[in-house]
Lab assay of single mutants.
Amino acid sequence: MDETGKELVLALYDYQEKSPREVTMKKGDILTLLNSTNKDSWKVEVKITVNGKTYERQGFVPAAYVKKL
């Protein structure tokens, strides 16, 4: 869990989004878990840094590609 009590997951593999509802992640990324009720895909939040500014983006990733921490 992070400092706000949200559950975290670790990306086990790289994943490139295939639709606007998904998010891209790299192996080793730590993501905030938002919903894990679907056995196939979990909703997560990723933090992306562009030019020194951090943005948050929500979307789905394959459940088999992440592990709860």
Rank of each mutant, 00 (worst) to 15 (best):
G28I: 04
A63Q: 04
T24K: 04
P62M: 05
K26E: 03
W42N: 00
L31I: 06
N51M: 09
Y15S: 01
E45G: 12
P62Q: 04
R21V: 10
G28V: 02
V46P: 00
K47W: 08
M1I: 12
T32Q: 09
L69R: 00
V44A: 00
E56I: 15
K6C: 15
Q58P: 02
S36V: 05
P20V: 09
S19I: 03
Q16T: 13
E17P: 15
K39W: 07
K43Y: 15
L12I: 09
M25Q: 02
V50C: 11
L33G: 00
V46H: 08
Y13M: 12
T54A: 07
G5P: 14
I30N: 01
E7N: 10
M1W: 13
L69S: 02
T49D: 08
R21S: 14
N38S: 10
K18Y: 03
D29Y: 05
V46I: 15
Y13I: 10
V44C: 02
K68P: 08
D29F: 08
I48R: 08
P20T: 09
G52S: 04
S41Y: 15
E3D: 13
Y55A: 06
S36C: 14
K18H: 07
E3M: 13
K53N: 11
D2F: 13
L69H: 04
V61F: 02
T49R: 09
E7R: 11
V46E: 00
I48M: 10
T37H: 10
S19M: 06
F60R: 01
E45T: 09
F60K: 00
Y15L: 02
L10E: 11
K43G: 04
K43H: 10
G59H: 01
L10W: 06
V44F: 03
D2I: 14
K67I: 14
E22T: 05
K39T: 11
S19H: 11
F60W: 15
G59E: 01
V50K: 09
F60G: 00
I48W: 11
I30D: 00
A11D: 01
A63R: 08
K18A: 10
K18F: 04
S36L: 04
D14G: 04
K53Q: 13
Y65K: 08
G28Y: 03
L31P: 00
K6T: 12
T49P: 03
E17I: 05
N38H: 09
D40E: 11
E22Q: 05
L12F: 03
L10H: 03
V46M: 10
T37S: 14
Y13W: 10
D2V: 14
L33V: 06
T32S: 07
G5Q: 13
P62W: 06
K68Q: 07
